[in-house]
Simulated scan of single mutants.
Amino acid sequence: MSSFKREFTKLYNDSPANYIKAKRLEKAAELLQASDNRITDIALDCGFNDLANFTKSFRDKYNVTPSNYRLKSR
Rank of each mutant, 00 (worst) to 15 (best):
S3A: 11
F4R: 04
F4W: 05
K5T: 15
E7A: 13
F8L: 09
F8H: 10
F8R: 03
F8W: 07
T9Y: 03
K10Y: 09
K10F: 14
L11M: 14
L11Y: 08
N13V: 02
N13L: 14
D14F: 02
S15W: 02
P16M: 06
A17F: 07
N18V: 06
N18A: 11
N18G: 09
Y19Q: 02
Y19R: 00
K21D: 06
A22S: 08
K23V: 07
K23E: 05
R24I: 06
R24L: 09
R24K: 15
R24N: 10
E26V: 09
E26D: 12
K27Q: 14
K27H: 07
K27M: 11
A28T: 01
A28C: 03
A29Q: 04
L31D: 03
L32C: 02
Q33E: 13
Q33V: 15
A34R: 06
A34V: 07
A34Q: 14
S35Y: 02
D36M: 07
D36R: 08
N37E: 15
N37Q: 13
N37Y: 15
R38D: 13
R38W: 09
I39S: 03
I39Y: 00
I39Q: 03
I39T: 13
T40I: 09
T40E: 12
T40D: 09
T40F: 08
I42Y: 01
I42P: 00
I42K: 02
